[in-house]
């Protein structure tokens, strides 16, 4: 079972800081991220994310955060 809460995204994009450069979704090895009509990143296929953090460390705008790897707890259910 996925460690995230139901419905929680594995990756968070700060839409206010994203400048639509395309680096995160071009370099994501699993094509989890895509660009919207303006080129801004969004999480299109959350279930495929392997949490490699490539998107997070490549973002020049600090706009991507991979939700911390953690074990599911009772509260998450």
């Amino acid at each position: 079972m996925s460690p995230e809460k139901k419905g929680q995204m594995p990756v968070e994009i700060n839409q206010k800081w994203c400048k639509a450069c395309g680096l995160c979704y071009a370099l994501c090895p699993k094509k989890v991220l895509e660009g919207d009509e303006w080129g801004k990143a969004f999480v299109a296929h959350p279930e495929d994310c392997i949490k490699c953090q490539t998107c997070e460390i490549m973002c020049p705008d600090l706009a991507v955060k991979v939700v911390a790897l953690r074990k599911a707890t009772k509260e998450d259910e």
């Binding site: 800081w17 400048k19 639509a20 680096l23 460390i57 490549m58 973002c59 020049p60 705008d61 600090l62």
Partner: peptide
Amino acid sequence: KMPHIWCPGCGHGVMMNALLR
């Protein structure tokens, strides 16, 4: 102070990200 002034996809931002890490 964010978002910063650098253009979309500027490599200086990638460097800053690595420095902060």
